[in-house]
Every structure is written in C-alpha cells, then in structure tokens.
Design a protein around this nucleic acid. Structure first.
Lengths: 195, 195
DNA sequence: TTTAATACGGAACATTGTTCCGGTTAGCAA
DNA sequence: TTGCTAACCGGAACAATGTTCCGTATTAAA
C-alpha cells in the first residue's frame, strides 16, 4: 500500500500522510464511532479531504483499513504477551485485549449488518487472524494444565464477540463482563481432565 | 394518531395523507430498503416533504410506524388463518407469513443495531404482539396432536428471526429456508408424546 | 538548479435529512 | 351559499456529509 503498482516507493509526503490518516481515523472512530464525518478525520490528520480520498477512494476503505490494522495489532499482541508472561496470565491478558477491541467498535456492528459489500470480508479477516493467535495461547495454557484442551479458539472468540457487542454504546457493560467471566471460568473447568 | 390531543378528529385531508404516506413508505421500504430517501416516499404518496415531516417529525418515526403496522398486520393474520384453516395448516401458513415479514426487512436489522434510541423498543413490540399470536396457533396445533406442546412461541420466533435475517439483501436465501424447515420439523417431532 | 511527475488542499458538487413560511383548504357558522 | 379561521399543504431553502476536480505545491531525479 505504501508502494504504487510499479516498484517505485511512494513519495515521502504520501507515506507520511497515509500514516497520519490511519492514526487520525483510529482515534476519531474510537471517539465518535465509525459514522464520524470524513472531514473530522482529515482535519485531525492535518490534511485535506482530497488527500484522504486519494488514499482511500471510499469512506468504507478507510474503515476497513483501520479495522484490519487493529486486528493485526491484536494478533501481534498475542506473541508479545506469550513471551512476557506465563501461559495463564498471557491468555487472560490477551482475552482482555480482545474484549476491549470488540467493545470499542461503536457503530461497526451496524455497518457489518448494513449489507455494504465493502464490509463483507471483515468477519473472515478477523477470524483468520485472531483465531490462530488465540489458539496458540490456548494450547500453551492447556499444556500448562490451566485450561481445558477441547476449546476451539474460533468458538471462544465468536462467543465473546456476541456477548460484548450487543452493548450498543462505546464501553462494555458490567453485564457483558460477568457473562464473559463465566465463559472464561468455563474454559478453566476440569482443566486437568477428570480423575 | 388520527386525532389531535383534543377530542376533535383530524381534518379529512390530514387523515388521507397520513394513510397515503404509510402505504407509500411500506412500498418504498420494501423496494429500496429502509435507507430510501424521504423524498421518494413523499413523491410516491403524492405529497410534499413538509407534509411528511408534519406527520412524522423524524425519519425514524416513519420507519417505526411502518414496522408497527406490519407487525400488527402479521398478528392479525394469525386470527384470520386460525378461522380459515385447520390447526396444522394455519400454523404453517402463519409461520411462512412471519418469515416473509422478517426477510423483507432489508436494512432494518442494521438500523436496530445502530444505537438509535428510536428503534430500541421495536424488538419488544414485535415479541409482545407476535408471541401471543404464535402461541395461540401453537397451542391449537398441539391440542390437535400435530406439534409438540413444549415449544415456547417466543423461542420459535426468535430462532426463525435469527435464521432468516443474516441474509443481508432483500429476499430469503435457500439456506435460510432449509434451516427454518429443519426447525419446523423439529417442533413436529414426537408430537403425541413418547409411547 | 531545473524539470517532470506526483501529491496536496480545499472549493465546488451531489445527495439527503430537516425547517420554514406563504398560499390553500376543510369544516363550521350565519 | 357565503365567509371565516384554524389547520394543513407544498416545496424552496438550509444544513450536514460523501465525493470529485483542478490549480498549486512538493518531491526526487537529471
């Protein structure tokens, strides 16, 4: 994306503005939801709307780019946490990270159900990138005898997403937290197999 | 709604336009989804946008009114069908009616998840009116020994709604139809209790 | 430094929700 | 029937927002 179709690298200002736009969009979406006006994003990035539209021909392209970037960051956090903490702690912290990610998507769930084909591949992208990350953490924790070994990463993520997203507004509700806690306790149950 | 706050009935033209607007909105929403421009609806009703906005101060008010009217019509169909057909046939036909209703709500599911407080009471309205209707048909069919008697109307409706709505576009998919068929076969299973 | 290619910015356009107001009409009374 | 008034109607005008366009500025290579 930082390079045009031919091998030539993009111009320095183009790269700089692309980054600024992504950062600004991430912040604005988190603050005002994905329905925020494009002008707000361009302004926060210190850039004209023309520039924004050259990098992201449609508003939805920007949303998709931010979504993917955040998914990637969440996936990357799995490796980091796995190195820094022991299996149980790493899994717990990463699930918390994932919950924050899902809960912060104000307005995105509506966009996903809007029928706009631009958003159609997003759920698959999320699963494709986060399920392996979660799977690694789950297996490590299972090997350490902290959680059961028969939990599918995709099922766990899907369940958490469903429990957290109905929230509607920005933050996560206490109710969602309780339900997710139950779920996580569930994967700890009988971790070492029945005697 | 056809009468102002005081007892006086609304003027004839006001009543006429209200009806025309509701009919036009129903048709346009079915054709172009709930995101259709207000102007289209006003034009199809043969009315100016000013008139539309006097009757429905916000676009969402019109959506809500149409939704409620359709729910009411669907609920009323239950009585009609119960009189015209024997229990099994009546239930089957009504469920088909309900499926059409759910599947035709193009874009409405997105609106429901949009966080707009105007749409918040709609799911409860739907359940409040359709669950009793479905319950009556179910009980009659159960008494006739055609379906099981341990099926909750609300569960059945919710399940059908979930199976049909993910569709996205206007019509209902073959996949949804198959899943719903399975579900309906499920309520027929072991209808007369186990021997 | 010069130059060509590329990117930039923001004014202008298109679409759509919403408001406003001068003209029209329904319903009532004489 | 005629006249009157409150209520209603239509659509122009306003505001917000996605998108396009093009003259100007910047980059990077010669």
């Amino acid at each position: 994306m930082a390079e045009p179709k031919d091998g030539k690298p993009a111009r320095a200002d183009a790269r700089r503005n692309l980054h600024a736009l992504l950062d600004a969009a991430m912040e604005v979406f988190a603050t005002s939801g994905v329905d925020a006006p494009v002008r707000d994003i361009a302004e926060k990035a210190g850039v004209g709307v023309g520039t924004l539209y050259r990098h992201f021909p449609q508003r939805s392209d920007l949303i998709v780019a931010v979504f993917r970037k955040e998914v990637d960051a969440c996936a990357a956090a799995a490796s980091t946490l796995a190195e820094e903490y022991e299996p149980g702690e790493a899994l717990e912290r990463w699930l918390d990270r994932f919950i924050q990610f899902v809960a912060a998507k104000r307005g995105l769930s509506a966009a996903l159900h809007s029928g706009d084909p631009a958003f159609e591949p997003l759920p698959a992208y999320l699963m494709g990138h986060l399920a392996p990350a979660a799977s690694g953490l789950l297996q490590a924790a299972a090997t350490a005898g902290i959680v059961r070994s028969d939990v599918e990463a995709a099922d766990l993520l899907m369940a958490i997403a469903h429990l957290c997203s109905p929230d509607g507004k920005g933050g996560i509700t206490k109710e969602s937290r309780r339900m997710v806690s139950l779920l996580i306790d569930g994967i700890r149950y009988n971790a070492r197999g029945r005697p």
